[in-house]
Design a protein around this nucleic acid. Structure first.
Lengths: 257, 257
DNA sequence: TAGATTGTTAATCGATTAACAATC
DNA sequence: TAGATTGTTAATCGATTAACAATC
């Protein structure tokens, strides 16, 4: 991840070049492009067309070009995009030129797994501290890190310059944990607890609710069953031919592998 | 979860009433309303206004009323919504009147945690089978279920009427697992592997990528730092006052707790 | 030059929101 | 009836998409 001067920085007065005001939908797709680009780089490609990159990222090429156009113009007409340059660009925009420190709160079932998740480390982050409110878990070592008591959050947050807090506690504890994270200056929270968090302006919260994902899929199962006229309780309904046009959930489109 | 006849079922000819054609954005919010309604029911409320329910679900009331209007009219003007009735309604639409069987493939770090995740069971699902390709993991018992070899998928899928497949394998294995799931009739897949899956029309895929969530937060951290003129590497930037209008990420809005 | 592919335009589509008439 | 709150309308906003001029 080399530092890369941002080209959209015009006559801005701040000490740091302002980032382009990217649409949220674009921001959410940039990490997917980045992942696809790393795959391409590893397989020896140094140039890629919008069509090929779009396929690898599971979007259509018009959307990809539109998204990239918000970053500035980094393609070459008639040729495509330089893979290494585009990686640098996207990593710069996403703020991945520094490895951000993550604090994980709640080392139960899910928290344990997250603490050991290699993808966090390989994609730009550093798990800097683990916390729990349960004394019986404090002191346990997970993946080379010792679990601290949540009361030590302030001390450790200052030491480690925590940029992002991850909440993996039960729902009833989550708001209190969020309040503590905000109090020590954390302005980005990833919440795995199934509840709504109340935070001040300027704090970003993203929520991942595993049961909700299944419930959304359940709706589509139910809908497919009702369309084919097969009773919703019938087994093996999935083997029946379906009318087209149902595949897209807004999450992924079918693409050639 | 009582069976509830769907009111939007007009003169449809199929054996099962057709579901209303809900906007995807609405479908994605219904589970959040359902969770909030269950909380309300548990705390003794039998009626709720759109304003109160919206707050509990982290959306504004206009959006909530609009969403619910797609299901039909279940509120009473001047009074609000009947909590129990609305729970039945939403559970019906989401297809949660039956407990759907889930097959989980990949019992590594994350898969282990998912296999023990209580939220799946408490919110309408049944983990019916665990699979792995690694012989050393086959036979292990997790949460009362024995891990089977992925080659046994066809046999067990037929026995258990698997409705949803969850992929928690490393990325290189995910496409092959998806192909196998589709081959045995699974038409809904939740993918935790960081890669794009190629599936036929009629198969729904939702993707959860934990690193992508952090990268989106990283973008906003980077952006906040650039706006305040504080170098992106400076610690404790979060304690600085920020210009307003930055809180919403499209994922959650600030609400009173 | 001819072929390929980007970056941009403009049309379309879907989602959000405020306001308020309907109505309990 | 008066007050409260829904369901719907219409305006606005943001995202998607196809098409193609620009240009390598």
């Amino acid at each position: 991840m080399s530092q890369h001067r941002h080209p959209g920085a015009s006559g801005h007065t701040g000490a740091v070049p302002a980032l382009p005001d990217l649409p949220e939908a674009t921001v959410a797709r940039l990490p997917e492009y980045l992942r696809a680009l790393h795959n391409l780089a590893e397989t020896g490609h140094d140039t890629v067309s919008s069509e090929a990159l779009a396929t690898a990222a599971g979007v259509n090429s018009a959307k990809l070009r539109k998204d990239l156009s918000h970053l500035g113009s980094y393609g070459t007409r008639g040729v495509g995009y330089d893979v290494a340059l585009l990686i640098d660009q996207i990593e710069y925009v996403l703020g991945l030129t520094q490895r951000r420190a993550v604090a994980l709160v709640g080392v139960g079932n899910l928290g344990h797994a997250l603490a050991g998740y290699a993808g966090f480390v390989s994609r730009g982050f550093r798990i800097a501290a683990l916390f729990d409110a349960d004394e019986s878990r404090v002191g346990e070592e997970i993946n080379g890190l010792v679990v601290r008591h949540i009361d030590d959050l302030a001390t450790i947050a200052a030491q480690e310059a925590i940029a992002i807090g991850v909440i993996a506690t039960p729902a009833p504890a989550a708001q209190s944990v969020a309040d503590r994270l905000v109090a020590v200056g954390v302005t980005s929270i990833l919440n795995f607890a199934p509840c709504v968090l109340s935070v001040p302006d300027g704090v970003d919260v993203r929520k991942v609710d595993l049961a909700i994902e299944l419930q959304i899929l359940s709706f589509h199962e139910h809908r497919k069953a009702s369309l084919t006229g097969i009773p919703a309780s019938g087994p093996a309904a999935g083997l029946t031919a379906l009318p087209g046009g149902l595949a897209a959930t807004g999450t992924q489109e079918a693409v050639g592998s």
